[in-house]
Design a protein around this nucleic acid. Structure first.
Lengths: 206, 206
DNA sequence: GCCCCAGTAGACAGACTTGTCTTGTATGAT
DNA sequence: ATCATACAAGACAAGTCTGTCTACTGGGGC
């Protein structure tokens, strides 16, 4: 799952932006997310990033290599947003489990939002492929993170709670791409709050 | 969202199955779902269904027409499974709201499960396209159905409950394609039960 | 006998795909 | 001055894609 690219796509060919490799990756980041993996050809990426074909193939031996690097980048960005949203909810892990849904909300609000890059990538790749495997790894990483948070929040069944929150997150990510209604993200957060409260009745609370 | 095709894909070319149109649609149903919309070419569908190219284009003027018909068929199948699962949970709308998640469970269990055909189709189509619009319509239809069920179950906020259940359903559909773990579908059902119970405290219950 | 219809088989056009390879240019180190 | 590096520009191969078109075949109605 991810958000739309936060940086400018830098479509200006002559602009002295970063290295050729960086420009390629930025262009791929914007294009792959916006249009899909198969819909974007190498030639388009090359033209859009103002790079020679030989240069492209120097840094990325194949399109799949570029896609894998793209997924790594998306992972970094999205995980960062998730952690930041959780952190800004305070010290309490229970609050963090709810607060992380703010990342979902702001992602869905973003112009050009087109759902979770990983779910989308999985839809375009066959099971067993490196790309598909990469998406599975990402999902499991998020689930594991959710579970440690749930455990620290003192949930009775951290695995169970993490699973439910992950479902809510994925559902919000997926459906946010279809109806732009922010009500979905809000509902996800509200439901998460209910689940967390239900699972982690702390002694101080009634 | 949908399930894997329940019927045999009928890959035998010489077999005297139904009309040419039917054969094409059945082949497309299996292939599009298993491999994705863009990954399957017209030639593959033609070869697999043992049909001449002219015959194909007689029934489906373009590939997009076939895809749209495919989505209609998926809609019928999945909606049928959803309604059947709900109905077999009994008369009580509250029970039905939980029981419908059995359709999710059995879909995820099915060999060759590859997630929700509509989410996948949305990942492969640009917003505004007929295909993308079709997926949005499907999602809204499911949400509307959930809402009438929630209202009949006496939920305090039927829209809210329907939204949450839809999130859970989409999340289960999407993540079920990544990790084959049936725990996700079970967690979705359990969470749904909790939400329904929470939202529809009937006077007879404590 | 004759014609229409549904179908098969497959050549073909034109565009698009990934990936390789050649040629030329600019810059910075030695 | 020379040489390595990094890069642009683009021709090219070999394959894919969708969609059109021609040529042929078998069966039912008249």
């Amino acid at each position: 799952m991810t958000a739309a690219p936060a940086e400018s796509p830098a479509p200006v060919p002559g602009a002295p932006s970063g290295s050729a490799r960086e420009r390629i990756l930025e262009t791929a980041f914007a294009l792959f997310y916006a249009r899909g993996l198969r819909a974007v050809g190498i030639d388009t990426i090359i033209a859009e990033s103002g790079v020679a074909k030989a240069t492209f193939y120097k840094y990325f031996p194949s399109k799949d290599d570029l896609i894998l690097t793209y997924l790594d980048k998306v992972d970094g960005v999205w995980t960062g947003q998730l952690h930041a949203a959780a952190a800004s909810a305070g010290e309490d892990p229970a609050d963090q489990l709810v607060g992380l849904f703010d990342a979902l909300y702001s992602s869905c609000q973003r112009e050009g939002y087109r759902g979770c890059a990983f779910i989308n990538a999985a839809a375009e790749s066959a099971p067993g492929t490196a790309i598909h495997t990469r998406t599975v790894a990402h999902k499991q990483a998020v689930l594991a993170w959710l579970e440690t948070l749930a455990a620290r929040a003192g949930a009775a069944q951290p695995g169970q709670l993490a699973r439910s929150l992950s479902l809510l997150l994925d559902g919000g990510l997926a459906s946010g791409a279809l109806d732009a209604d922010p009500a979905a993200a809000e509902a996800a957060r509200a439901t998460a709050a209910l689940l967390v409260q239900q699972s982690t009745r702390r002694p101080s609370a009634g």
